[in-house]
């Protein structure tokens, strides 16, 4: 689904900040609504380019759809000048937005089978709309597992969603932390270690993985080890994106442009470069 913005994908449209939720530390979730008109449709896994006036633009994955209000939801961590500006907005502020761009998660291919979502840290954000999609069409899928690794119990992204996702055992959501505290009753350790403990039929499973590249490499190894075919594993890649439309060349990952051919990529198609440094 390609955006239409006066026929010029370079030009952002004005969106208003409708809601700001502080998740933890340097991470905020923004609800953005278009000023006039409706937002374009999107597929879970796609991203938008968000623009802070006069500061710059950053590629941010779409993490939700603002239930019936016609907006986008984005989760942002302050890491640079642009994300700092975006994470510092207040309700009512205007930001620029162009998108959505890129390829999303294979949710229709996954129908009639099991799904394993593996997320690390902010990698949960682009998987969140996929999880919501699965819940809305729950009968189309069999067992659904979410394995989420995060730093510690204080960096639980979308904590309030987990209860809803788990309700009625619709999603078997397991959280593991790298560092636990005395109050933590859940799992401790790296998220790939949860894969062998999960219940799914490896030959009838679609796995969707998003997180830091190192974590994804380990997670893919665990999934392969569990018998999931390479073509049933999808990863969401990250590279430097400036234009988002395949023209600036910066997000190249081998022969692919992440903005156009990704960010969601089928593992077997990138397997030969997945472990090569500095590609």
């Amino acid at each position: 689904m390609m955006p239409t913005m006066d026929g010029d994908a370079w030009r952002p449209s004005v969106y208003r900040v409708a809601r700001v939720v502080r998740e933890f530390e340097e991470v905020v979730t923004l609800t953005l609504r278009p000023e006039g008109g409706n937002r374009p449709a999107f597929m879970p896994g796609q991203f938008n380019m968000l623009y802070a006036f006069g500061v710059g633009e950053a590629a941010i994955s779409i993490c939700g759809e603002d239930e019936g209000q016609g907006g986008f939801v984005h989760t942002i961590r302050r890491v640079g000048a642009v994300s700092h500006a975006l994470a510092s907005v207040s309700e009512g502020d205007a930001v620029g937005l162009r998108g959505p761009f890129g390829k999303g998660w294979p949710l229709s291919e996954a129908e009639r089978g099991d799904i394993v979502f593996v997320a690390g840290g902010l990698g949960l954000a682009p998987l969140r709309p996929a999880i919501e999609h699965v819940l809305q069409h729950r009968s189309h899928y069999r067992r659904v597992t979410l394995l989420f690794g995060t730093r510690n119990p204080h960096t639980m992204l979308f904590e309030s969603d987990f209860g809803r996702w788990r309700r009625g055992a619709e999603v078997d959501a397991v959280v593991t932390v790298d560092q636990a505290d005395a109050a933590w009753r859940g799992s401790v350790g790296a998220v790939p270690a949860l894969v062998p403990r999960a219940t799914f039929d490896p030959k009838e499973t679609m796995a969707m993985v998003c997180g830091p590249e190192v974590m994804m490499r380990f997670a893919v190894a665990s999934l392969r080890d569990a018998g999931v075919p390479a073509e049933s594993i999808h990863v969401s890649m990250e590279r430097n994106m400036k234009c988002a439309i395949g023209l600036c060349g910066r997000c190249q990952y081998g022969q692919d442009f992440i903005c156009r051919d990704g960010p969601v990529m089928r593992y077997d198609r990138v397997a030969s470069r997945f472990s090569i440094r500095e590609i």
């Binding site: 006069g54 600036c248 910066r250």
Partner: peptide, 23 residues
């Protein structure tokens, strides 16, 4: 053909521009 995209803002915050340069 590779480029970078730079966003500039005026010092008083009244205007901004996006500039593409060879990279």
């Amino acid at each position: 053909f590779c480029t970078t995209i730079e966003d500039h803002g005026s010092i008083d915050g009244s205007s901004a521009e996006r500039v593409r340069t060879w990279d």
